[in-house]
């Protein structure tokens, strides 16, 4: 009973905050409305009994949306949040796409002949998740991790206009790097 009530509260909260993302006119409020929507989804995942996934969604989404807030406010058309703004672009097109996707998903929920559950849940779901992700695919995961990291490093190297000669002099003999702002490595 409690889980049914919780499900509806969280589901409605996720939708309402998602809707507010498009209705609010302040970039900061939009960001945190999106965060609230994600947190409601995390609650739904917790309701499914997937405690690790649910809590990790909370952890990652809070970190992610706070970083997002910085960039969204920096790049979007309403930097200070003082002037009203609109989150709409391509109003008609997006409304049509959203409507079609919604109808398709609801039709899927209602029409698909869902199978009944077979087998039992693992005793420790977190362990089972780790096993499923890592167990047979450790090599894939390691390669993926190194590839992603190499991509990040390469992107930074390609995009910066300052190299080690700018920082340490033509003969690389400067003791302390000459940086416009502190906090860099070296």
């Amino acid at each position: 009973m409690i889980s049914i009530v919780l499900f509806w509260v969280l589901a409605v909260a996720a939708l309402v905050f998602g809707f507010l993302v498009f209705r609010l006119d302040s970039m900061a409020q939009v960001t945190f409305a999106l965060l609230a929507s994600f947190l409601a989804v995390a609650g739904l995942v917790l309701l499914l009994g997937l405690s690790y996934l649910g809590v990790v969604i909370v952890l990652m989404m809070v970190i992610e949306m706070v970083i997002m807030a910085v960039f969204m406010i920096m790049y979007m058309m309403n930097p200070a949040g003082l002037m009203p703004m609109s989150m709409f672009h391509n109003t008609k097109g997006s409304a049509v796409i959203a409507g079609v996707v919604f109808v398709a998903l609801v039709a899927g929920i209602l029409l698909v002949d869902w199978p009944t559950r077979q087998g039992e849940a693992a005793p420790d779901l977190t362990f089972a998740l780790g096993e499923a992700l890592m167990g047979g695919q450790m090599l894939t995961m390691m390669t993926l991790g190194v590839t992603l990291f190499a991509t990040i490093v390469a992107t930074v190297v390609l995009s910066t206009n300052r190299g080690r000669y700018d920082r340490f002099g033509d003969d690389l003999d400067r003791a302390v790097a000459d940086d416009p702002a502190g906090g860099g490595v070296g």
Binding site: F32, V55, V58, V62
Partner: peptide, 22 residues
């Protein structure tokens, strides 16, 4: 006594991050 207690703890700490900015 959550089975993911330490992750929960860290997730709650991180909320401070959003709070201070807000």
């Amino acid at each position: 006594d959550l089975d993911v207690g330490v992750v929960w703890f860290n997730a709650m700490e991180v909320l401070a991050w959003a709070a201070v900015w807000m």
